[in-house]
Design a protein around this nucleic acid. Structure first.
Length: 491
RNA sequence: CGAGGCGUAGCGCAGUCCGGUAGCGCACCUGCUUUGGGAGCAGGGGGUCGCAGGUUCAAAUCCUGCCGCCUCGACCA
């Protein structure tokens, strides 16, 4: 394997794949479309889980777990929902293997065919609403504010590590409410929870918006989303929150009695983010040297690399470094002392940059003599010196600055790639060039949206929540438009 | 599912056209010298060449069939 990563400008897809593998985030499994998330990658995912889970709990939600297998019949209860997922479901048909009569290995035992086939969940609305029917009798049982952390399977045509895998990890919130207003408020609240997390923890700026009917979740009345823009100018849907109306309540016959003793159907939401966020992290902050992880998410915030020529020096530096790591720990900073004697400093520098550790401290004889450490920040790749006694106080401030700076850099790039376009030829040229969020007028019809998609591969990512009324003419048809929507090519 | 590419050591590859002792780089092991931006030298270990048939004195190499993976498209969190 070559020492340098493929450069983004040379081959963006190749850069991405190499980075995922070289930074030890994940690797392919023998099964097409499936991936092994390695400890370092999983540690980042655990950070995402930890932060989100705290926010879910803070907004009154509780966790539960529903099964992986769903009876096939459940999928057909909500018509739009079937259409949306039927094409990509894994199906369990048998429950036993046997030795092949010809000794060639194991085969499926034909005797062990299931009476009703089982679907491996592509999402859990159906199984959950089946149970909500039993859980909900009266308005006193509402709302139900529930989340689950789970894996789901969608048999994708073309998988990509983290961005689109056959099996992926996610969380799915499923709530039940007495009124439409309450459910809608819930869906909007969770979108804001996502936006807050992605912007302030992951340092990725997002556009909050609502999907057009074409792009809406199968079975939803309204799909809210946050859309991020990757460095190559393509959009990535980072999270969705759905107002499901009474569709699932009606499909699974979930009714409750109001205070006035009237029977009503329950109102629902669902919302989710997945390991795809890992892809967003990589493609927002990564560079030609590797990953760059925002401090609030980094499994290791600070790595200390020693430099020495002999055992005496090594021992002296070790003593200072361990003391420093301890002080940083007390200051709430996760620090690691890289005392591996089998690797030289230059190798370690490159390796920790590849892995995206936000701050590196270097401690050598020269530094000890001056009672200081060299401080390197991964985001700007700048070096400076800080006195050893000041580090415990300075590092938390520095990490905070890295966090802010990473967001600023990402936001400036996003803003630079967000442009108003009024000419269809220019619209197409931009998509074929640097891409980005193209703010353009649209006549509001699905036909126009579909035609633009066919001709340019761009979709309406969303109608922004901060939509401004601005009379104009549709970029394709020239028909009247009330304002601009966000177009982009997407992952 | 369409179009390309690739399966040879843990990883990345050469060797295949033109059949004849299975190689290179990285990684790994041992030793010495090194250590402020991916160290150097010396020695060493590791491969049923994707699978199954066939041709041949002889197959990684030729023939037939299968399987798998990657990239690009249509579909999607």
């Amino acid at each position: 394997m070559s020492e340098k990563l493929t450069r983004r400008a040379d081959n963006y897809a190749e850069w991405y794949n190499e980075l995922v593998k070289r930074a030890d985030l994940a690797e392919h499994s023998p099964v097409r479309g499936c991936m092994v998330i390695k400890p370092y990658g999983f540690a980042i995912w655990e950070g995402i889980q930890r932060e989100l889970d705290a926010r879910f709990k803070a907004t009154g939600h509780v966790n539960a777990y529903f099964p992986l297998f769903i009876p096939k019949s459940f999928l057909s209860k909500e018509a739009e929902h079937v259409d949306g997922f039927a094409k990509e479901c894994a199906v369990v048909t048998h429950h036993r293997l046997m030795n092949a009569p010809d000794g060639s290995g194991v085969v499926v035992d034909p005797e062990a065919k299931l009476a009703e086939e089982l679907i491996v969940r592509p999402t859990s609305e159906t199984i959950i609403w089946h149970h909500y029917k039993d859980w909900i009798r009266s308005y006193r049982d509402l709302p139900i504010l529930l989340n689950q952390w789970a894996n789901v399977v969608r048999w994708e045509m073309r998988p990509r590590l983290f961005l689109r895998t056959a099996e992926f990890l996610w969380q799915e919130g499923h709530t039940a409410h007495a009124t439409a207003e309450e459910a809608l408020a819930e869906a909007k609240q969770m979108l804001e929870v996502y936006a807050d997390f992605v912007e302030n923890v992951m340092a990725i700026p997002v556009v909050r918006g609502v999907k057009t009917p074409n792009e809406r979740f199968a079975g939803a009345l309204e799909t809210f989303c946050i859309e991020a823009l990757m460095q190559d100018g393509k959009a990535l849907q980072a999270g969705t929150s759905h107002f499901l109306g009474q569709n699932f309540a009606k499909a699974f016959d979930v009714k409750y009695l109001t205070k006035e003793n009237k029977e009503e159907y329950v109102w629902a939401t669902s919302w989710g983010v997945s390991t795809r966020l890992m892809g967003a992290l990589i493609m927002t902050h990564g560079d030609d040297d590797g990953l760059c992880i925002p401090p609030k998410l980094a499994p290791v915030s600070v790595v200390v690399v020693p430099i020495y020529k002999n055992d005496d020096e090594r021992e002296n530096i070790r003593r200072v470094a361990l003391n420093l790591v301890e002080k940083l720990k007390n200051a709430g900073v996760t620090a690691k002392f890289d005392d591996d004697d089998s690797k030289r400093p230059g190798w370690k520098f490159a390796e920790w940059e590849l892995k995206g550790v936000p701050v590196r401290l270097t401690l050598g004889p020269k530094d000890l003599a001056e009672n200081r450490a060299e401080v390197f920040r991964r985001d700007l790749k700048t070096k400076s010196f800080v006195g050893l006694d000041a580090l415990a106080a300075e590092i938390p401030k520095l990490l905070n600055d890295v966090q802010q700076t990473m967001f600023q850099i990402a936001k400036e790039r996003r803003d630079r790639l967000t442009v108003e376009i009024d000419d269809y030829a220019e619209f197409q040229a931009r998509l074929d060039g640097e891409g980005g969020f193209l703010l353009a007028h649209w006549d509001g019809t699905s036909e126009t949206e579909e035609r633009i998609k066919q001709e340019t591969k761009a979709t309406i990512r969303c109608i922004p929540l901060d939509f401004v009324e601005e009379p104009g003419r549709c970029i394709l048809t020239g028909r009247p438009s009330r304002g601009r929507v966000v177009f982009a090519r997407a992952y």
